[in-house]
Computed example of a mutant assay.
Amino acid sequence: MVEGELPASTDVHVIARFIQTVQNGMSILARDGASRTELEDVAEVAMLGWEARTGD
């Protein structure tokens, strides 16, 4: 596996749904007035989920 590639066992549909869900939720938060810091905090936690799923 080349650095930056996802492992072959990665379920890309689950990853895509995860990203879509986070993006939609952050969009709603932003619309409702969340601060940049609040949105960055959400992104940071979401990346923990990404790392746990992909090993990156």
Results as ranks from 00 to 15, higher is better:
residue 12 V to G: 02
residue 47 M to R: 10
residue 23 Q to S: 15
residue 27 S to N: 15
residue 25 G to D: 00
residue 48 L to E: 08
residue 43 A to I: 05
residue 41 D to W: 08
residue 37 T to N: 06
residue 19 I to L: 15
residue 37 T to F: 12
residue 3 E to R: 14
residue 9 S to R: 10
residue 34 A to I: 00
residue 43 A to E: 08
residue 48 L to V: 01
residue 8 A to W: 11
residue 23 Q to C: 05
residue 24 N to R: 14
residue 6 L to Q: 04
residue 38 E to M: 04
residue 18 F to V: 01
residue 38 E to Q: 11
residue 35 S to W: 07
residue 32 D to H: 07
residue 46 A to M: 04
residue 35 S to H: 09
residue 48 L to Y: 08
residue 56 D to R: 13
residue 12 V to R: 14
residue 31 R to K: 13
residue 17 R to N: 10
residue 40 E to A: 11
residue 31 R to G: 11
residue 36 R to N: 09
residue 26 M to Y: 10
residue 53 R to F: 15
residue 41 D to I: 02
residue 45 V to Q: 12
residue 45 V to G: 02
residue 33 G to H: 06
residue 31 R to N: 09
residue 26 M to S: 05
residue 10 T to G: 05
residue 39 L to R: 03
residue 40 E to T: 02
residue 40 E to C: 02
residue 13 H to I: 01
residue 3 E to L: 15
residue 50 W to E: 00
residue 37 T to I: 05
residue 52 A to P: 03
residue 13 H to L: 04
residue 22 V to Y: 07
residue 22 V to M: 06
residue 35 S to F: 09
residue 5 E to M: 06
residue 31 R to I: 02
residue 19 I to R: 13
residue 42 V to C: 06
residue 35 S to P: 08
residue 55 G to C: 00
residue 40 E to N: 10
residue 20 Q to G: 09
residue 29 L to F: 04
residue 38 E to A: 09
residue 49 G to E: 02
residue 24 N to M: 09
residue 27 S to A: 15
residue 19 I to D: 07
residue 52 A to D: 08
residue 37 T to A: 14
residue 2 V to R: 11
residue 47 M to W: 14
residue 38 E to T: 03
residue 56 D to C: 08
residue 8 A to P: 12
residue 49 G to Y: 09
residue 16 A to R: 13
residue 37 T to K: 11
residue 10 T to N: 06
residue 15 I to P: 02
residue 27 S to P: 03
residue 16 A to H: 08
residue 9 S to W: 14
residue 30 A to M: 02
residue 26 M to G: 02
residue 37 T to W: 11
residue 28 I to A: 03
residue 3 E to I: 12
residue 19 I to M: 11
residue 25 G to F: 03
residue 35 S to A: 10
residue 27 S to M: 13
residue 20 Q to N: 13
residue 13 H to A: 08
residue 34 A to H: 07
residue 44 E to N: 05
residue 4 G to D: 04
residue 23 Q to P: 01
residue 8 A to G: 05
residue 19 I to P: 01
residue 12 V to Q: 07
residue 21 T to M: 09
residue 44 E to F: 14
residue 31 R to T: 01
residue 29 L to R: 03
residue 55 G to V: 01
residue 35 S to E: 07
residue 25 G to P: 00
residue 33 G to A: 05
residue 13 H to Q: 12
residue 51 E to C: 04
residue 45 V to C: 04
residue 56 D to Y: 15
residue 34 A to G: 01
residue 1 M to D: 02
residue 49 G to S: 03
residue 15 I to D: 03
residue 22 V to F: 09
residue 19 I to K: 11
residue 41 D to Y: 14
residue 23 Q to M: 09
residue 12 V to I: 03
residue 19 I to E: 08
residue 29 L to M: 02
residue 4 G to Y: 12
residue 19 I to N: 12
residue 42 V to A: 12
residue 12 V to M: 04
residue 38 E to Y: 14
residue 35 S to C: 06
residue 10 T to K: 08
residue 47 M to K: 13
residue 12 V to F: 10
residue 54 T to S: 10
residue 48 L to R: 07
residue 23 Q to N: 12
residue 38 E to G: 00
